[in-house]
Design a binder for these strands. Structure first.
Lengths: 218, 218
DNA sequence: AACGGGGCTGAGCAGTTGCTTAGGTCCCCG
DNA sequence: CGGGGACCTAAGCAACTGCTCAGCCCCGTT
């Protein structure tokens, strides 16, 4: 907020810290700066309330420069969504694929997934809450990625349930609930809060663990 | 776990029922129609992507008519947010205040809160995800209401933890998690889905129950 | 019948939006 | 040296935005 006339040399570390290293590979440099500016702006104000002038300004460029690197404003959102989703899916997949019991895999998956949503809450907010602004084709492509993360999680629950390690009455519903829990972190997390991303991840992993474990009957 | 059936299927068969009976008291009629139109539009496209012309159109009126009943578009959002929050807080409070063990109170609270978010998902979506578009003063007022619902839930957890009925390591964190779970229902729920609001409420109440209960040590 | 006022509309204003276009600068290649 | 492509800007267009205003209709009161 309040950086309309900010010095161009300014918040490079700021942007990098809050807005992600996931876009490191994007070239040329100007295209990456535009992406980072867009992530920031979309997360702060939402897609529709963000102007192309704002995005270009954050990247230290004129409004017209945006259209050299991206066809439309929506394509900018799509790139963010795509890269962000790919990143989060791969975080989840890696955690769930590791060895150990199904309980281990589940705990690791939740912890890492949550941690990603907290650490990259700026990107995650855009990724999770601005989907509706995507064009139809782009939307379909993203939905496919989301299906993947749901399937990964469901796979762990099914495996644990089949082996008797878990006791889950409604696997699909529980999967959805766990996803909700993790995703919603991006909505409320603030680096100023009292908990670190890792602490939240650990807490949530524990809560989820309890959700799927059979209870001592009172 | 008293049976609190109430009327069997008091669901209004009106198609508009999805858009809420919470605004029944709003008069005159035109003002209410505008509110309902705004809820629909905001839920579909988001506040910033919705035009005053769209809202007025849904209410069957000319764009200018909106300004007879509301000062700005933002005030429309504020009214929706306020009424919606008041409604959801009162649903939560009523459920948590009822008798029974703390486990009963918690289960009832989650079930009713979730059910509200599913049944009134259109309103809930606006209420929960469009806050950022509110003006500063209005925003503060709404945040206060949200604090209330968090406190109600935390109260139940604290009570159950103190009495030994629950075993919660991190009460604030768990409160937040439960709130997340319930609220996020509004984001993904669709009446076309395979689950009824009541089924989701019951499932979630069970999941939360497990979250706060001490585990059988394997 | 005359009045008055709330409810509503058609027309439109000033400002903003996403995006385009014509032209400039730089640097790499021959 | 000169040509060409990548990159960027200033200026601006057409469309749309939230919102206003003069005036019309309708209805209960006098």
């Amino acid at each position: 907020m309040a950086s309309e006339t900010g010095s161009p040399a300014k918040a490079d570390e700021d942007v990098r810290a809050s807005a992600d290293e996931s876009f490191e590979g994007v070239t040329p440099d100007a295209a990456r700066r535009l992406l980072l500016g867009a992530v920031e702006a979309f997360a702060e104000r939402g897609f529709h309330a963000t102007t192309t002038r704002d995005i270009a300004g954050r990247a230290g460029m004129s409004p017209a420069a945006l259209y050299i690197h991206y066809k439309t404003k929506e394509e900018l959102l799509f790139q963010i969504s795509k890269v962000g989703h790919e990143r989060s899916v791969s975080v989840l997949a890696e955690a769930a694929d590791g060895g150990g019991t199904d309980a281990d895999r589940l705990a690791r998956a939740v912890r890492h997934f949550v941690r990603w949503h907290a650490e990259h809450h700026t990107t995650a907010r855009v990724v999770q809450y601005e989907l509706a602004a995507l064009g139809e084709e782009h939307y379909e492509e993203i939905v496919e990625l989301r299906r993947r993360s749901e399937e990964i999680l469901r796979g762990v629950l099914e495996s644990g349930d089949a082996s008797g390690e878990f006791e889950v009455a409604d696997i699909r519903g529980t999967t959805l609930a766990v996803m909700s829990l993790c995703i919603d972190v991006a909505r409320w997390y603030s680096p100023k809060g009292r908990r670190t991303p890792d602490e939240i991840g650990t807490l949530y992993a524990d809560l989820v663990q309890r959700m799927v474990t059979s209870q001592a009957v009172a």
